[in-house]
């Protein structure tokens, strides 16, 4: 897939993103390319600036300089809401779920459906039935629902189940890109496996996915390309079939120079 994607236009592309927090440089000219249909891994040592990069393309951080393009058009996100409206959905490491609200409430938080007719337009009444049915459908589709109490609050769910809800929310509403930040970090072996399968299932329907993870076996297993982030920018992009895990770690930690041949762009 790697060879063919090069001629395609990237779905999401950034050039020269900069971000400073006081004297700390979090991004120093970060480039990023995500091609249609691919699963792109993003790896990097702690403090390399992965999170700032991801927050920039999901609207949670506003970069000081640089450009972000979605489908070739320059975009500018001021809030996560802007990114969501543009079709970019993110599963944050902390999941961004409200514990005291129900599964359905969380699925539709910030984009609630109103009842049709006067009840919706004048009395602003929410269409709980429609939102619950939609949430149930999406969770079932992903094989996450066995007992159907969609009104259960998030706090009554296990870690794996919460992750499932966050993934379902992103997949249900993401129309262009789904970003997953450490989706398996808090999960057991079995749950991690399920999330990886989910990623592949969602990708199989044509959705490009960005996977940020510290788990090398997971990244090498599911990703088509791997973006290595180092010192606030992209060091290189590698093909997981041609570069070994140990070389990737060496590149990521600076133990090895970036080989010219490994850089895709």
């Amino acid at each position: 897939m790697t060879a063919s994607t090069n001629v395609l236009q990237p779905v999401l592309r950034t050039r020269g993103l900069m971000k400073r927090y006081g004297t700390v440089v979090a991004m120093n000219g970060a480039d990023f390319d995500l091609y249609p249909n691919e699963i792109l891994g993003v790896i990097g040592d702690n403090g390399a600036g992965k999170t700032t990069l991801i927050r920039s393309i999901s609207g949670a951080t506003i970069p000081d300089h640089g450009t972000i393009e979605l489908d070739g058009k320059a975009i500018h996100f001021n809030t996560p809401e802007d990114a969501r409206k543009a079709g970019i959905e993110t599963v944050y490491q902390n999941l961004a779920l409200s514990p005291a609200l129900s599964i359905a409430d969380n699925m539709f938080l910030g984009r609630e459906l109103l009842k049709p007719g006067l009840m919706g337009s004048v009395f602003r009444k929410l269409d709980h039935k429609r939102m619950e049915a939609f949430s149930r459908d999406k969770l079932s589709e992903l094989g996450l629902l066995t007992i159907q109490n969609i009104n259960q609050t998030i706090e009554t769910l296990s870690g794996g189940q919460r992750q499932g809800v966050a993934v379902a929310r992103a997949v249900a509403f993401g129309s262009k890109v789904v970003i997953m930040d450490e989706p398996t970090a808090a999960l057991g072996v079995k749950e991690s496996r399920r999330v990886l399968e989910l990623i592949q299932e969602v990708n199989a329907k044509g959705m490009p996915i960005v996977l940020i993870s510290h788990n090398m076996p997971h990244v090498f297993e599911v990703c088509d390309r791997i973006h290595i982030h180092r010192l606030g920018k992209r060091l290189c992009t590698i093909d997981p079939k041609q570069v070994s895990m140990s070389d990737a770690v060496a590149l990521m930690t600076g133990a090895m120079e970036a080989p010219a041949s490994a850089a895709v762009d």
């Binding site: 809030t79 996560p80 961004a96 005291a100 609200l101 609630e112 602003r124």
Partner: peptide
């Protein structure tokens, strides 16, 4: 209970960071 504003009031008090990331102003 039945308007988006009401749900946002709960979400903001419950976990403000999650509320922001969920697109709530």
């Amino acid at each position: 209970q039945h308007t988006a504003w009401g749900r946002h009031v709960y979400a903001v008090g419950d976990d403000p960071e999650a509320a922001v990331l969920s697109g709530i102003k």
